[in-house]
Write a protein that binds this DNA or RNA. Structure first.
Ligand code: FES
Ligand code: FES
Lengths: 145, 145
DNA sequence: CTTGTAAAAGATAAAAAACTCTTTTATTTA
DNA sequence: TAAATAAAAGAGTTTTTTATCTTTTACAAG
């Protein structure tokens, strides 16, 4: 839960590309799919989308591939989530009411707001480039095997 | 996100029935659907399921309907969520890795664990019967209009 | 300027989730 | 015990999400 499958792949792919293109290299779609353990064509679609939204960059043809430029590295994980899943996770009601509000709160509102705000903070604080070191050092992973 | 639509309906329905059957009354499926603003047949299916799992009780025939007995009122919202969505929200990886673990954590693991634990605590602490007073007093709501 | 490469775009398919409809079973009451 | 009522059960449809396949476009190098 929390994120759609599409969004989970998206975050993992972006983090992967950020790490692999840190030195300016470009990363091919097959390598990305293998690197994050996702369906090739599916992650291709997702990256196409993120490319249009300028969260990742790409070039076609020989030596082409995906990469992430200096500016995009500063973007937050929240930008990825918003691009893929919209802002429901940041603003929506935990019990599915159409409008979350203080004036007509659901029974879980006050508790849920704390959770939602923590998610918001976490995703807004973390930038795309933040994970390279930890991945390089083998302290965290974005695929199973 | 966080919960499936089915689960959102389930929680709202259970809270609604708990409130309406506090005095021992039984609540019909149409009233429930109207009370939480959900599709009648859909919530019927959900309650059937929760009934088999003994989270709600029901009787057929005239004067029949759904209600929640004293024991079930003590159950937690986590019991509802587990029954409908399983335990992924409590144990799964935020980035969709098949196994969330300390030994092979995803880059968001430590942050995500805080969020997950807060969700866990919130849902385990709140019992089904906890919201009657607030609903009765008009301080919280489980439908929009 | 042709050939090979790699992403973009578009179309399609499979699976899961959300929702609906019909029939059956249990229960009450007249 | 027959009729009415209301949930249970089962089957079916629609929509959304996830995933795949094919064709086109862009680019680089020989
Ligand atoms: S109204 Fe439900 S979370 Fe705010
Ligand atoms: S491994 Fe991702 S949350 Fe634990």
């Amino acid at each position: 839960m929390v994120f759609s499958k599409t969004c989970e792949y998206a975050i993992r792919a972006v983090i992967y590309v950020a790490q692999k293109s840190e030195d300016g290299a470009k990363v091919g779609i097959k390598e990305i799919a293998a690197g994050i353990d996702s369906p090739v064509h599916f992650i291709a679609k997702i990256l196409q989308d993120l490319s249009k939204r300028e969260i990742v960059q790409s070039t076609k043809g020989p030596n082409g591939g995906f990469y992430i430029d200096k500016d995009s590295r500063k973007k937050s994980l929240a930008d990825i989530v918003t691009a893929i899943d919209g802002d429901r996770i940041f603003t929506g009601c935990g019990l599915g009411l159409k409008n979350c509000s203080e004036s007509k709160p659901c029974p879980l509102h006050s508790e849920f707001k704390i959770i939602r705000d923590k998610i918001k903070l976490t995703l807004h604080s973390a930038t795309i480039g933040d994970f390279n070191a930890s991945l390089n050092a083998g302290l965290s992973f974005i695929k199973e095997r």
